[in-house]
Design a protein around this nucleic acid. Sequence first.
DNA 1: TAGCAATCGGATTGCCCTATCCATTTTCGG
DNA 2: CCGAAAATGGATAGGGCAATCCGATTGCTA
Lengths: 232, 232
Amino acid sequence: MNPGAQPSDDAAVQPLRSDAERNRERIIAAGRTVFRRDGLNASMASVARGAGVGIATILRHFPAKDELVAAVFTDRMDAYADAVAVALEDPDPWQGFAAFIETACAMQAADHGFADVLTTTFPSAKALEQRRNEACEAVVQLIDRAKATGRLREDFAPSDLVLLHMANAGVVGATGEAAPDAWRRVVALLIQSFEAPARGPLPAPPEHAALYKAMHRAGPAGIPAPEPRKST
Amino acid sequence: MNPGAQPSDDAAVQPLRSDAERNRERIIAAGRTVFRRDGLNASMASVARGAGVGIATILRHFPAKDELVAAVFTDRMDAYADAVAVALEDPDPWQGFAAFIETACAMQAADHGFADVLTTTFPSAKALEQRRNEACEAVVQLIDRAKATGRLREDFAPSDLVLLHMANAGVVGATGEAAPDAWRRVVALLIQSFEAPARGPLPAPPEHAALYKAMHRAGPAGIPAPEPRKST
DNA sequence: TAGCAATCGGATTGCCCTATCCATTTTCGG
DNA sequence: CCGAAAATGGATAGGGCAATCCGATTGCTA
């Protein structure tokens, strides 16, 4: 009996027991539901309740909340990337660009958790961040293509999409169920402002690094920013 | 000794002792600072620390958080109303309108608490809400005046200003100190989209009642929305 | 089928929040 | 200057959250 055998790392650490695997799926499903409804600051406990498992079970599978978030939203990020891909195939680049923005913002409206995800980075969630980066690169193409047709203003910056998502998150977060379509109007206005010719100059877009840092910090309302600690 | 005397309601309940009055002012000042920095969900305890008083003292003066918020932000709301008034005196109505929006959004950026206040109603805070209503009425005039010149699109609705503030709150909340000027770009874009001629139709604005309800609900992140309670 | 180890989940700890209680301190009128 | 009433603020109750521990349970394998 070579019980330990040699640590065969071949299959990584996949040999989950069947019930463990089942619970894992339940937890992710519950997280999907709960985060969609309550945003990212929903408590782990509420996810546990939704999944019908104990709190400890969740924390075993996902030691940090980030990991649960990543597991839940990686496929949403896929859908986001898909939306960019679809947009890139639109014969009318501007049309594709505008439609993509609506689709993306609709995703935020339909899922408060995802609205937060799009304005926050989770450095530890490799898969999620990789999808995000892929989507970002495709978005840059989408932007360039739309600019090439002359219908997207020249000074549009990729970072403007992040700002758009932050603004939209603000709208969907504030209006919630009470006015579930209010975001459409804001987004429509913004899209019109993206259209060339520009009606005026714009302040410079934020530094890439600054925006990245902003997405790190307090993103949505997820990390409550631990009380700046008076030096008194 | 007519200890009770007759309940002379003449001077309301003003006879505060000198130290009480002093502390009240300190608390409001501390609230101004703390809310500006941390937004409305700053804790009462942090305000107490900032004021150098006990927690109980704050809760005596302001039994509910709303009341402290109202006491702190009524004068900011005055400044907001003043900004509208100034805008109304601009010889160029469109210029006044656009400048007002920038000023108002700058106020949000400079004070995270006020950013929240502009997207939330505090029904119990009569003074605050009255100022808000006055400002709103003036804003309607501002809008009408700007439309009359033909430079503001006809389909602009007063509620769009609320949406603007929600969007801006999202941007300033997400970017925070990391990109403190990012909001300017978003606001500039939106202002350009407000300019006539409209580049396209817009989805209908949200019902007034719906938006009001939205401002009631969870506004910023102030009232954590008490966990929708699964009916299971 | 039996035993072992992986897994589960309630109870618990530690932290932060709002709100209340009461012994102590401070103000102010006589 | 003194005493009563007002005001204070630390201690404390009550609730929520993230995270940990450990006895009970379950799946797996020999």
